[in-house]
Design a protein around this nucleic acid. Structure first.
Lengths: 142, 142
DNA sequence: AAAGATTGATGCATCAATCTTC
DNA sequence: GAAGATTGATGCATCAATCTTT
């Protein structure tokens, strides 16, 4: 165990960092350019729709995204100001509702998102490699 | 081409996002905990050492990192305030010098960084899969 | 007290505008 | 004027402190 990465290790590490950053940036840019939503906005809106047909408890939203409460709170504040969601105090917590504008934006963004993910990631993974990659990534996330 | 990702596509996309985020956060946290440097600080300092034995032109640094000028400028301003680097105006641009404190921090961080990268990424990639993964990642970054 | 949520402060990324130097 | 660099504004992530409700 040397204190520096070997050339081979460096190569894999750099490739990893570059790819992760490139895919993230490209998908995000495509969504933003076409819909005005950030990738994070999109993540929240789709969860509102998919998890609760437009209404989800804030706590459940935090669990689903894996974000800290404060991050979600700040994010929802900004989205509320832009008219994408509304919050409503309810027993035992807060309910987050998607607005008309939020629904419209989410519906418009959905195909853009799917196309961007395919173009920048999915379509570039050889079919023979896909399953092994998925397994590896799942393990890495653990 | 549906307007939504299929379940298989979703699985790969989510695994990708989770893994990218987890590895980035873990490696960054290890470095910060042990050295007080952010991963970005570390990236700058190692380049100063490896590219120019402690002194590199700011423009060259920008090219090497791939960052925009403004990002690098802000970053260097903060690092200068923490005593990690110094800037010196020179014909045709600016020279960035690593300080004593910067050198010390970089040297201390190097093995921590290598260990973190190995623990959170390299050691978890099956040897048989490593080369194919590197090739794929390199392609994705293009 | 404990869980859910908000707030304020700080650091970072990005963009546009500006300044400086060749 | 063009390249190198800085600055200011805005949005986002994270942390710690606080408030609220049960």
């Amino acid at each position: 165990m040397a204190d520096r990465l070997t050339d081979e290790e460096q190569a894999l590490w750099h490739a990893w960092k570059q790819a992760a950053e490139a895919v993230r940036a490209r998908v995000g840019a495509d969504i933003t350019a076409d819909t005005g939503l950030s990738d994070v906005d999109f993540a929240v809106l789709t969860r509102l729709v998919d998890l609760g047909r437009g209404t989800v408890r804030q706590n459940e939203l935090a669990a689903s995204t894996g974000w800290h409460r404060s991050r979600l709170s700040h994010q929802l504040t900004r989205m509320e100001q832009r008219g994408l969601v509304r919050r409503r105090s309810v027993e035992g917590g807060v309910e987050v509702h998607i607005t008309e504008a939020g629904s419209t934006a989410a519906a418009a963004a959905r195909p853009v998102h799917a196309a961007a993910v395919r173009r920048h990631l999915l379509d570039r993974v050889p079919a023979a490699q896909a399953e092994a990659l998925r397994a590896l990534l799942t393990d890495l996330a653990t």
